[in-house]
Amino acid sequence: MTTLTGPVRATTAATPPSSPPPRRRARRTPRDWLRDGGLSTLVIALPMILVFGVFSWFPIGRALVMSLQQTNLVTAPEFVGLENFVFVLSDPLLGKAVANTLWFALLALVFGYPLPLAAAVLMSEVKRLRGLYSALAYLPVVVPPVVAVLLWKFFYDASPSGVFNTIAGWVGLGPFPWLQDAGSAMPSLVLEATWAAAGGTVIIYLAALVGVRTELYEAAEVDGAGVWRKIWHVTLPQLRGVLFITLILQVIGTSQVFLEPFLFTGGGPNNATLTVLMLIYDYAFGSSLGGNYGAATALSLMLAGVLAVLSAIYFRVTRPWSS
């Protein structure tokens, strides 16, 4: 060390004190890249790059181009500038679809978000048969979505002899129209969607609950906290990172709801369950003579943009809370 001190000092003395020492960036040559394992890294990453490139990035780029074209994929595409965006924004059904999608998202948030959390907390308190309860909670996730919807469609039979109406009749209620009425169709869809998706979220919360340190509960008990105060002051704060993530995932997921309205109601009755994705589908595949793919991709890009902005705002706002 001492042998180096002199020259260093000499160099420092020749440089103005306020200037930092110049940083020489080593020039990396292809040989360096190869020596450092760059080739093997590329080879390992190549399949993933190709998969993403072909199935994600290329379609996204293609959608960008197509949103500026008038095309039915058969005749030659015509560049139309922002005409597709204007068409979509002037479509009277867009407002209806956006309102319906927000309504679905709100209902799903109010009913579908707290339910898995409550279930997970209760299950974590259970000492016996926890695995069985977990399996039962997760079972709907295993049922193929289309099968689940067809099953629930049968349950939602609006006649007095329908499954749900029969059950409601036991307590003097109904019969309810369920899917056959503009007012009750969307809540009916949310009910099934919550049933179908809650299991996966329950498992995530259960896994997160394992990570909550037991000494925090013990300390709370020493302080005289009951079950609810322990949940409020220990469990929820410890889960907030996971809660924030599942919340934004739910918002994004519900904003893209398609399966339920498509299979249950086809967007009806009277467009009461027409969602944004259903509208995109109708633009693209509504006609056997070639859909309006330009409008479909334009609306898809607008939806993606809105969700991206929403996510960015959300993470910015919640950053102080989740750290």
Partner: peptide, 12 residues
């Protein structure tokens, strides 16, 4: 024949 796929099949 299917109305939702015919245009794509024609194009493809």
């Amino acid at each position: 024949w299917s109305g939702t796929t015919f245009a794509a099949e024609l194009a493809g």
